[in-house]
Design a protein around this nucleic acid. Structure first.
Lengths: 311, 311
DNA sequence: ACTTCAGATAAGATTTACTTAACTGACCAT
DNA sequence: ATGGTCAGTTAAGTAAATCTTATCTGAAGT
C-alpha cells in the first residue's frame, strides 16, 4: 500500500475531536488528558502533512482537510464500535432482551414470567414493549414476539399459537349475557388491535356467524387488546377477546368464555430470532420455556369450535 | 461507554487475519512479524473473552464470534482507509487524474496535451479512458470530461463546446466527393457513437437537410468516434464527423470539411469536477489550459452553418 | 488588570507493540 | 519411518508509542 494509515489512535482521537469540536471533551470521552489528545492530533497532522484543525483562540474548527476526513472516519469507527458491541453481546449469556407488543407483554408474558425467572435466576431479562418492529442488530434484541400473518425473511420463526376470538365477560355477567339472546342487550367492548386483519374478526362478523341479529357496532373501542380485556375483567361489558391474551385470565377465573363459537383469521403470534442465536444458552432456555407454556392453550382450543369467516 | 473498544491495532490485526484466513499473510500485509500478529489476536481474544479463531493444524478458521466480528470490522476499516486516501489525495498537488471517453482522449486530449505538459512539468497526469461514468471519490478522479445533454447534480460543470457534425474526408477525396452530387456515390462512414442522441444527427438526417436524395444508410459503422475519423483520415470514405473531435485533424489538414452545412443536437462536452476542487493548483492549471484550448474551436464554427434538425 | 479557559509544550514514566529466536505439531516428502 | 517444512505459539528483551503531571500561552470575559 503506497500510503499507509497513520496510527489508529490518532485517527480515533481526531474523530472524537471533530465530533465534539473540542479537544477537552474528546479527551474526556477517550479517558485521556487533553495533553495526550493534543499530541495525537499533532501526530495525525504530521502524517497528513497539513493541519486538520484551525486553532482559534478558545475553540477549534475543522480545516478543509479535516472536513474531508471526519465524516468517513466517523462512519468507519461507528461500524467498528457496532460490530464490537454486537460481538460482545453474543458472548453475554446473562442478558436476554425480548421485544413484544404491550398487550402480549402485559397479558401473556408478565403473568407467566415468574416460572421462567425461578427456573433461570441467572438470566437477566429485559423487555422492550413496542408496537414498532425492532431491528435485531441495531436495537440489540435477542427475541421478538410478533403478531400477524407475515413472514420474517432471514430469521428463524416459530409459531406460538393460532389466535382466535370468542366472547368473554366477567363471571358476574354470565347469567345475564351468557346466552345468544343475552348478548343482544350487552354492552359490547371492541378490541381494535386486530382491526387490521382480513378477513375481519370483529363483533359484527361473530354475530353473523352465530346467527344473532343485532347492531354490533356500538360500544367502547380500545386500540390495545390488553385495555379491552381489562375493561371486561372489570365487568365493563362483553369483549370479543383474543384467546392467547386472555388465556391467563380465563384460567384464573377472571373471565369466562361461555360460547363454543370462536373465530380465527389465520393470524398468530410467533417467536422470531436470528439464525444461530438458538445456541446461546439464555435463548435456548427461553425457547424451551415458551414452548412448554404454549401447551396450555390447547385446553382452551378444545372448548371452542373455531371457525374461519369467509373472506 | 460500558464496554470500551479493545486496542485498535488488535482489531486491525484481526481484520487482516480474517480476510486472509492466515496469520502469516496478515502479518506480511501489516509489515509485522507473525509473532506480533499472534499476540494481537491473543490480546483481542482476552478482551472479548472468547477465541475468534479455531487453531487448526496448519490453518485457522473463524469461530462464531470471529464470524460475527469480521464483516463489520472490514466495513469500518474500509471506510477509514477510504477516507484517509481521499484526504491524502486532496493534499497531493502533483497528480491530476482525468477521465474521458476513448474518442475524446485520443482525438482531442492527446494531440493537445504536450502544451499542457510543457507548461506544467510538475503535474503528473493520469488518464482513465472509459465509457463508464466514474465516481469521483471511489475512483479517485479529479476531472471528468463527459458528453451528452445531461447534468451533474452536486458537481461543478463547465461546457466545453457545442458538438456539431459535418461531412469530412481526406483531402484526396475532396475533388471527387466534395460536392452535393459527389456525395451520392461516396462511401459513407457512420459514427454510431452519437446514435443515442435525439434528435438524430446522422447521415440520413444531414442528407435530408442538404436536400440530397440518396440511400444514406449503408456503409461501415463504427461504435467509437475516433475509429470512424481514423477511417476517414485513411481515405476510407466520407464521415459525418464530430467537429470537436476532428478539430485537430482539420487544423493539420488530415481532414477537410468542404460543406457549410452542419448539424447540432444540443449535446456538448463538458468538464466536471467536485465542488471546491477548483482551488487545488493542478486543477486550476488544467481548467485554465482547457478553457484556452477551446477557443480554437470558434474558427471552425465560423466556417459552417450550424443547424438543429427538427425533433 | 485580573481571572479563566482551551489548548500547546516539556520532561519523564509507563505501557504497548514489536523483534529475534527457540518451540510445537502436523503434514509431506523420500 | 524420519527428517524437512510450514503455520502458528511462546519467551525475553528492546524499541517506540502513548500517557501523565506540570508549566506555559494567549485571548475572552469581567
Amino acid at each position: 500500500m503506497p500510503d499507509a494509515l497513520p496510527p489508529l489512535t490518532a485517527l480515533r482521537a481526531f474523530e472524537a475531536a471533530a465530533r465534539h469540536l473540542s479537544f477537552a471533551q474528546a479527551a474526556e470521552e477517550l479517558h485521556v488528558t487533553p495533553a495526550a489528545l493534543s499530541f495525537q492530533i499533532k501526530s495525525l497532522e504530521e502524517h497528513l502533512g497539513t493541519p486538520v484543525f484551525h486553532r482559534l483562540n478558545r475553540a477549534v474548527a475543522l480545516t478543509e482537510a479535516g472536513r474531508a476526513l471526519a465524516p468517513g472516519l466517523s462512519d468507519g469507527f461507528d461500524a467498528i464500535r457496532s460490530a464490537w458491541r454486537a460481538t460482545r453481546r453474543l458472548q453475554d449469556t446473562r442478558v436476554l432482551t425480548i421485544t413484544a407488543g404491550p398487550a402480549f407483554t402485559s397479558k401473556w408474558l408478565s403473568p407467566r414470567l415468574f416460572t421462567f425467572a425461578q427456573a433461570h435466576p441467572e438470566i437477566e431479562l429485559r423487555f422492550v414493549a413496542s408496537l414498532r418492529i425492532m431491528d435485531f442488530d441495531r436495537d440489540e434484541i435477542d427475541i421478538a414476539i410478533r403478531f400477524g400473518q407475515g413472514t420474517d425473511a432471514g430469521l428463524v420463526s416459530y409459531p406460538l399459537s393460532d389466535e382466535f376470538v370468542t366472547p368473554m365477560m366477567s363471571p358476574a355477567l354470565v347469567e345475564k349475557h351468557g346466552t345468544p339472546e343475552g348478548l343482544r342487550n350487552a354492552l359490547l367492548l371492541h378490541d381494535d388491535s386486530i382491526a387490521f386483519l382480513r378477513p375481519r374478526v370483529d363483533w359484527p362478523s361473530w354475530m353473523r356467524l352465530a346467527g344473532i341479529e343485532c347492531d354490533a357496532t356500538h360500544g367502547p373501542r380500545f386500540s390495545q387488546a390488553d385495555h379491552a380485556l381489562d375493561a371486561a375483567i372489570a365487568g365493563g361489558g362483553v369483549v370479543l377477546g383474543r384467546a392467547t391474551l386472555a388465556a391467563a385470565a380465563l384460567r384464573d377465573g377472571l373471565l369466562v368464555a361461555p360460547f363454543r363459537l370462536a373465530q380465527t383469521s389465520g393470524a398468530q403470534f410467533r417467536i422470531v430470532h436470528q439464525k444461530g442465536a438458538e445456541n446461546r444458552p439464555q435463548l435456548a432456555a427461553f425457547l424451551d420455556w415458551i414452548k412448554s407454556e404454549t401447551l396450555g392453550i390447547q385446553d382452551l382450543k378444545a372448548r371452542h369450535d373455531i371457525v374461519a369467516p369467509h373472506p
